[in-house]
Design a protein around this nucleic acid. Structure first.
Lengths: 145, 145
DNA sequence: CGTGTAAGGAATTCTGACACG
DNA sequence: CGTGTAAGGAATTCTGACACG
């Protein structure tokens, strides 16, 4: 029912290896290059300067951070307090990924999408399955054959 | 219990706005610039040439596609069949995102991480909750107060 | 504090061609 | 078919300075 290439697939997702130039970060987030350079100088964000001779590269995680800071600044926070708040928010993404990597056991896209989320803990003989019907994702329990 | 900034947060994740230069794609995937240019010339992948005067920019989705093609080529497939297989796989990411955006209703990172996945369909009065304990993600059903 | 701009040098990307096969 | 390289022009990024506030 499920191909189990999924876990392997998840690991190969090129997200930790993403290194964007400053121009691409600026365009993706709407934060100017001037701002990014200043933020980096102040230590609010970091770049992978060492690995690239000269050009500053930013990870996807930093891009998220930048976007968060910007959203808080839009809400009226000063730069430094926006940074502090964004830092807490950063933990979310890591948690989501760990959930993702641990619980997504398999997936199929044929005849309606299904995602196997592994044993349902209150009833471990059954697997928790998310399935998509009419554009709606629902949950059900499936017995493992 | 859950802050509900989550859905908003998900929407603001800068992933569709990501536009990487060819060098960054090459480094992220391990596919050479020569290859990427050839693949684009053949129509196997696409760049956002129109929006950027001159420089080819690639979306994150294309980065995924490139990585998939490369993995299939590592398995011994020719370029053209690797492309065909990668295309099918591409649907996965879209499905995962739709699941994500639809069902992740809230999240908290305090005193053990918790993710609210909304009403558990076989028992809709209760919410399906994923919680993290000792680095392990488990499921349970919570009554909504 | 936080951001922008003008300035010149350095690194990146572009295209079209040619090579190997 | 699929990838690499040398070549010269075009676009991007770098740093340090200066401006405004």
């Amino acid at each position: 029912m499920f191909n189990n290439e999924m876990k392997e697939f998840m690991k190969k997702i090129p997200i930790d290896d993403l290194q964007l130039g400053i121009g691409d970060v600026a365009e993706a987030t709407g934060v100017s290059q001037s701002q990014l350079r200043y933020w980096e100088r102040k230590g609010y964000i970091q770049s992978l300067e060492t690995t690239n001779r000269g050009n500053h590269k930013f990870t996807y995680k930093t891009v998220m951070q930048v976007k968060q800071i910007q959203l808080f600044m839009d809400d009226g926070y000063t730069l430094s307090s926006a940074v502090a708040r964004a830092r807490k928010r950063g933990a979310y993404m890591d948690l989501l990924r760990s959930f993702f990597e641990q619980r997504f056991e398999g997936m199929t896209a044929e005849d309606g999408a299904k995602i196997d989320l592994g044993p349902f803990d209150p009833e471990p003989t059954k697997h928790l399955v998310a399935y998509c019907q009419d554009q709606q994702w629902r949950f059900r329990l499936d017995s493992v054959e």
